[in-house]
C-alpha cells in the first residue's frame, strides 16, 4: 500500500514537472497574446494590460477567419488521403514479399532526407506543370507527398505486429481479403493510424515555405502559416498579433488530438484481444 502511494507520489511529481516544462513556452505565448501592450515587445510574466484586442484584430483584419477555414480543409484532406495511401502501401510492404521491396523502402526514406529549401524550385516548377499553382489542391497533394514516407514506415511496423493468426481465423470464417482488412487489420492498426494522422495534420497545418511559394497571389487560399508570417515586418514585429495568431494556430491541433486520442485508448482493448 505504502509502496503504491509512493509510486503515485513520484508519478504526480513527474507529471507536474513535465507539464511545467511543456507548457511554460505556451504560457508565455498566451500571456503576450492577451497583453494589449505586447506590441512593443519585452514580455513580462503576466499581461501588463489584459485584453482580447489582439485576438480580435487577428481574426478580422488579420484574415484568420479565412485562413483557418483553408487550413482546416487542407489539413483534413491531407490527413485522410495520406492515411489511406500510407495504410495501403504499408500493408503491401509488411505483408507481402516481392522484388525491389527493400530498395523501395529505402527510396521512400530517401525522398524525405532532402532539405525542403533545396526542393522549393523544382517542386514549384513541377506543381506549375501540373497546373495546380495557386490552388488548395496543389498544396494538399504536396503535403500528402511530404507525410507519406513517415506514414508508410510508421504503419508498416503496426501492420507487421498484428498476429497473422487473426487474419487466418478470418479467412477460415470465409471472409474475403477486403473483409479481413476492414474488420481485422484496420481496428488493430488504429493507434498507429492515429499517430500518423496527428503527424500529417501538423505537417499540413504548420508548413510555410511551400504554402507561400505555391499559393502565390491567391490570398483567398492562404493558410494560417502564411497568415502568421505577415506580422513579421521588415522593420518591426507585431508581437501581440504574432502570439495571438500562434495561439489560434495551436488550439485546433489540440482539439484534433483530443478527438482522435480516444482511438489511442481503444488500442488498449485491441491489445487485450490479440494476446
Amino acid at each position: 500500500m505504502s509502496r503504491n502511494a509512493r509510486a503515485s507520489a513520484v508519478k504526480a511529481v513527474l507529471v507536474v514537472l513535465l507539464l511545467a516544462f511543456t507548457l511554460f513556452p505556451a504560457f508565455w505565448m498566451l500571456s503576450s497574446a492577451f497583453d494589449a501592450r505586447a506590441g512593443s515587445g519585452g514580455q513580462t510574466l503576466l499581461p501588463r494590460e489584459f485584453s482580447l484586442e489582439n485576438f480580435g484584430y487577428v481574426l478580422t483584419e488579420g484574415g484568420f477567419d479565412v485562413f483557418l477555414r483553408n487550413s482546416a480543409m487542407v489539413a483534413l484532406v491531407t490527413v485522410l488521403a495520406s492515411a489511406v495511401l500510407a495504410l495501403l502501401a504499408s500493408v503491401a510492404v509488411a505483408r507481402f514479399r516481392f522484388r525491389f521491396r527493400t530498395s523501395m523502402l529505402l527510396m521512400i526514406l530517401v525522398v524525405q532526407m532532402v532539405p525542403l529549401e533545396a526542393l522549393v524550385i523544382p517542386l514549384f516548377v513541377q506543381v506549375r506543370d501540373l497546373g495546380l499553382l495557386n490552388t488548395l489542391l496543389g498544396l494538399m497533394v504536396v503535403y500528402v507527398a511530404l507525410s507519406l514516407p513517415f506514414g508508410i514506415w510508421m504503419l508498416r511496423g503496426f501492420v507487421a505486429a498484428v498476429p497473422i493468426e487473426l487474419e487466418e481465423a478470418a479467412y477460415l470464417d470465409g471472409a474475403t481479403w477486403g473483409r479481413m482488412f476492414r474488420s481485422v487489420l484496420l481496428p488493430l492498426v488504429m493507434p498507429g493510424l492515429v499517430a500518423t494522422s496527428v503527424f500529417s495534420f501538423i505537417t499540413a497545418w504548420n508548413e510555410f515555405i511551400f504554402a507561400m511559394t505555391l499559393l502565390g497571389g491567391a490570398s483567398e487560399n492562404y493558410t494560417v502559416a502564411i497568415g502568421l508570417k505577415q506580422f513579421f515586418g521588415e522593420h518591426t514585429n507585431e508581437w501581440g498579433y504574432i502570439m495571438a495568431a500562434s495561439t489560434i494556430i495551436t488550439i485546433p491541433v489540440m482539439i484534433f488530438f483530443v478527438v482522435v486520442q480516444r482511438r489511442l485508448s481503444a488500442g488498449l482493448v485491441a491489445g487485450a484481444v490479440k494476446g
Partner: peptide
C-alpha cells in the same frame, strides 16, 4: 512579405 519576397521572385522567375 519582405522576408520571403526574394524566394518568391526566384521561384516565379524559374516558373515563368
Amino acid at each position: 512579405q519582405w522576408a520571403d519576397a526574394h524566394d518568391r521572385f526566384v521561384t516565379s522567375i524559374a516558373g515563368g
